[in-house]
Computed example of a mutant assay.
Amino acid sequence: MGMKRYALLGLGAAGYAYFKNKDNREKATVAFNDTKEKINQLIDQAKQSMNDQESQAPKATGSYDLEDEKMKEEGAQTAVHYFNEKQEESSNKTNQL
């Protein structure tokens, strides 16, 4: 507990000594504002990216994964193909009789 107290005290003293100079305060303010602006830009880009992805997602199923949608479409085609083959087989059997 004692070491933490001395560490915080030393950190506070160093901060005071650094920010005592007006030039250092101005540099720190500029650096803080630049960092804040960059973070806001990254957040805006992330929001825009999410909005773009939502607009590209299929609306009927509510799914956001385009690969899943492709797989579902292919699965539906396979089922239709299988059904058509069964229909042709049954019609061929009735025609052969």
Rank of each mutant, 00 (worst) to 15 (best):
1 M>V: 07
1 M>Q: 09
1 M>Y: 01
2 G>L: 11
2 G>V: 12
3 M>Q: 14
3 M>A: 14
3 M>I: 08
4 K>C: 06
5 R>N: 10
5 R>V: 06
7 A>I: 03
9 L>G: 08
9 L>V: 03
9 L>P: 00
10 G>P: 02
10 G>C: 07
10 G>S: 12
11 L>W: 05
11 L>P: 00
12 G>Y: 00
12 G>R: 02
12 G>D: 02
13 A>M: 06
15 G>M: 05
15 G>S: 02
17 A>D: 01
17 A>I: 01
18 Y>G: 01
18 Y>W: 13
19 F>T: 02
19 F>G: 01
20 K>F: 06
21 N>E: 06
21 N>H: 11
21 N>A: 08
22 K>L: 14
22 K>H: 12
23 D>H: 10
23 D>L: 09
26 E>I: 13
27 K>H: 09
28 A>K: 02
28 A>D: 04
30 V>F: 08
30 V>S: 11
31 A>K: 12
31 A>R: 07
32 F>K: 14
32 F>D: 09
33 N>G: 10
34 D>Y: 05
34 D>W: 06
35 T>H: 14
36 K>F: 14
38 K>A: 15
38 K>W: 11
38 K>I: 10
39 I>M: 05
39 I>N: 04
39 I>K: 06
39 I>Q: 05
40 N>A: 15
40 N>V: 12
41 Q>I: 14
42 L>R: 06
43 I>Q: 08
44 D>T: 03
45 Q>P: 00
45 Q>I: 03
45 Q>W: 03
46 A>W: 00
47 K>F: 01
48 Q>C: 03
48 Q>P: 00
49 S>M: 13
49 S>V: 06
49 S>F: 14
50 M>E: 15
51 N>L: 12
51 N>W: 05
51 N>Q: 14
51 N>C: 04
52 D>R: 02
53 Q>Y: 13
53 Q>H: 13
54 E>W: 09
54 E>Y: 10
54 E>D: 13
55 S>Q: 14
55 S>F: 04
56 Q>V: 02
56 Q>M: 03
56 Q>E: 07
58 P>T: 01
61 T>W: 00
63 S>V: 11
63 S>E: 07
64 Y>H: 15
66 L>W: 10
67 E>R: 04
67 E>A: 08
67 E>K: 08
68 D>G: 09
69 E>W: 04
70 K>S: 07
70 K>C: 05
71 M>G: 08
71 M>N: 13
71 M>V: 15
72 K>G: 04
73 E>A: 15
77 Q>H: 08
77 Q>T: 10
80 V>R: 13
81 H>Y: 12
81 H>N: 15
82 Y>I: 14
84 N>P: 02
85 E>H: 12
85 E>K: 12
85 E>V: 13
87 Q>T: 07
87 Q>A: 11
87 Q>I: 10
87 Q>P: 01
88 E>N: 04
89 E>K: 10
89 E>T: 08
90 S>E: 11
91 S>Y: 09
91 S>C: 02
92 N>Y: 09
92 N>G: 08
93 K>M: 07
94 T>L: 05
94 T>S: 11
95 N>P: 01
95 N>W: 09
